[in-house]
């Protein structure tokens, strides 16, 4: 068995012993992160240590930098021209902001689910097989298996197993979003970033995605940006509150929502602004 999997098993066992955040290893360690879009200072001195195999929620009003931050974690933020960063984000002992770090490698290990479901205009099968294929997996049997496991992992297999060759655009919005999650799972990342994954969905589909996130955290570290505070309270272990590009507070979700240390957090949570 591979080293990778052994490590996962150990972490798995740890969790049963003691359900405290201390037992978790850190997956992303952000130190003094600053980010500018041209002249706009979008992230200011961010320091965050995000745990493995947990759901970490990032909340805050729009324009607070939460989306920018999550896109920095897989360097998708670089698609915007004129972005500059300082500071470091350590992932697996390496600084991912370092120019020598290959973004393709990073993004292979860190999956992402977007605000609006964005399946490719291809068949359901091809959507899932896309990731494995671009990473050189061509064997039809292996692909078949990956497709099934991934769809099962995203709890959408039963709904689509009879129409794998149909265009993904025929699915409902909620199904499309779960398909996008399945597409992430197909390359077995370590982390899944979710950027307001339910903001375009109805309550029923939202619930399904939330349940899915709960299930997935057994195997994956999940970081979710949301503007829905109930959602953060329902599904996350830890919550970070962002305001004007700064982390105001980062703690156990319970603490954030019941006994926040900062007035601004309390104001936001009680709906006084945002």
């Amino acid at each position: 068995m591979s080293m990778l999997m052994e490590r996962k098993m150990t972490v798995e066992n740890d969790k049963h012993v003691k359900k405290s955040s201390n037992s978790h290893r850190i997956v992303y360690d952000t130190k003094d992160l600053n980010l500018w879009y041209s002249n706009t200072h979008a992230l200011k001195d961010i320091n965050l240590a995000i745990n493995e195999k947990e759901v970490t929620a990032i909340i805050g009003p729009s324009g607070c930098g939460k989306s920018t931050y999550i896109k920095t974690l897989n360097r998708m933020v670089e698609l915007v021209p004129g972005v500059r960063t300082t500071g470091s984000i350590t992932y697996k002992n390496k600084n991912i902001l370092d120019k020598s770090f290959k973004v393709e490698d990073l993004r292979t290990q860190v999956g992402m689910v977007f605000q609006k479901a964005n399946p490719f205009p291809k068949s359901i099968y091809e959507n899932i097989a896309y990731g494995p294929k671009i990473h050189g997996i061509r064997n039809k049997k292996v692909l078949d298996e990956i497709v099934e496991t991934s769809l099962r992992g995203a709890y959408i297999w039963d709904e689509v197993k009879d129409r794998l060759n149909e265009n993904a655009y025929g699915l409902s919005g909620g199904q499309q979003q779960r398909l996008c999650i399945a597409r992430c799972l197909a390359i077995q990342p370590d982390v899944i970033l979710m950027d307001e994954p339910t903001s375009a969905l109805d309550p029923k589909s939202t619930l399904k995605i939330e349940e899915l996130a709960q299930e997935l955290k057994k195997d994956y570290s999940i970081i979710i940006v949301t503007h829905n505070m109930q959602q953060a309270a329902r599904i996350s272990d830890k919550t970070a509150f962002f305001l004007n590009g700064e982390v105001i507070e980062f703690d156990d979700t319970n603490t954030i929502f019941t006994n926040p240390a900062d007035n601004r957090t309390e104001d936001y949570i009680s709906g006084r602004f945002g």
């Binding site: 996962k8 494995p132 990473h135 292996v142 099962r152 994956y220």
Partner: peptide, 18 residues
Amino acid sequence: AKNSDSKTNNAVNVSEMI
């Protein structure tokens, strides 16, 4: 909750293959 360990129970280890 069934099949929750989809990743670790995978017959194929994709990340390894990648």
